[in-house]
Write a protein that binds this DNA or RNA. Sequence first.
DNA 1: ACAAAAGTGTTAATGATACACCCATGG
DNA 2: CCATGGGTGTATCATTAACACTTTTGT
Lengths: 234, 234
Amino acid sequence: MRMSEAFQYPQQGIRLTVDAVVFGYHSDRLQVLLIRRKYAPFEGQWALPGGFVAEPESLEQAVERELSEETGLKINYLEQLFSFGEPRRDPRFRVVSIAYMAIIRSDNMPLQASTDATDAQWFDTQELPPLAFDHAQILEKAISRLRSKLRYQPIGFDLLPEKFLFSDLERLYSTILNQPLDRRNFRKKMLSFGILEELSTKVSDGRGRPASLYRFDLERYQALQHENFYFEIP
Amino acid sequence: MRMSEAFQYPQQGIRLTVDAVVFGYHSDRLQVLLIRRKYAPFEGQWALPGGFVAEPESLEQAVERELSEETGLKINYLEQLFSFGEPRRDPRFRVVSIAYMAIIRSDNMPLQASTDATDAQWFDTQELPPLAFDHAQILEKAISRLRSKLRYQPIGFDLLPEKFLFSDLERLYSTILNQPLDRRNFRKKMLSFGILEELSTKVSDGRGRPASLYRFDLERYQALQHENFYFEIP
DNA sequence: ACAAAAGTGTTAATGATACACCCATGG
DNA sequence: CCATGGGTGTATCATTAACACTTTTGT
């Protein structure tokens, strides 16, 4: 085996793809972007956006290219999730897929009447259609990762517009974590980090007392990271 | 692109490997297993054990096979770490590597006078030689993962022999986390989980008061996981 | 009796949880 | 003046952190 490695450089016949679980947040719901497949296998079924990795591009570039080709969307946050490589996960031949988790700001979510793309649609994560391949498993892992990251990384802000209401942020947390939060405690904790800037503008949605807009202060956050600072929502 | 995907099934020329960061614990030090490369590139340099994935095997099987071929070691814990796919990480051609983190019980560490294997050696993680490819980066990521997992998963027991002294466990934590621990607080916390069984045997290393042996109670741990139980060392 | 490591409790500080009323606006 | 959502503080409880002496053995 070592010998063959050294001198033959075996060509494997294993294909490499990337798939992306793209999250958005709309109407107080966590949404995920799916693409309807045009071709077999799983023709007509919904699947995660993704595709084969091209020879000279990095994995991240591959994800960004595929997303841009299929949906025209601009990614706001991207991280590698997990690699899926069970031998029979694709019925055609061996495909190993490196899955990514991506986040798109809710003010960027509208889908472009897409170029090449078939159907691309946002789905509420609570009401998902059957998915092609092992994509349900990938999605499940992504949701679970998103949930835990929400608690110890300021990743929730990537799902909201740049300026947002505190109540939006709170609803986002309680929706995605699927648990009720105490408004006062949440506010106290979140403000204690000192990474939110309160803007002077107040907005009213028509009824109720007008609320302040906030903005996530990324620079401040990055500065704090070099000190003994831990973002954590209990 | 979609078209070509659907009908051509492009062969990519991207090779797929697995690499393993294998941790052991010996002489109160965290150790990692390295292999001296027999062939170019990086001939003679130290590298992580690993190799090409064979067509019909799962990724985990590939790791286990390579480790067994190269070192004869039996793995005690295995988890996928991260996938590395920068286009020029291998000077020969495009190789994407899926890295795993493995743990070997310290009573299993002796290396078999190896079959095929060249040199395989344990290295103290504080005194590492230069590594081939991007393996230093992989190793760094593995250590950081091990550190954080140590805090919230009972993974430290996988580094110790089946029966161990409480002081060993404590030293392991303070060594790997690289911080001093308070003996009383550590003990109190660790025992509070109820996942350690105190054995009746006491052992003495010649000087000082003899100490009890403990054993990690896996079944109890698994049972507790279904309840509201969180292992966490602060 | 001394050296060496094991074992053991209490207090103070900090952080988490629980909880209810007033405020500002639009209709 | 009513309905609606925004905004605020305090008291209790739980967890963590700090800290030092006694016990058991071998030499």
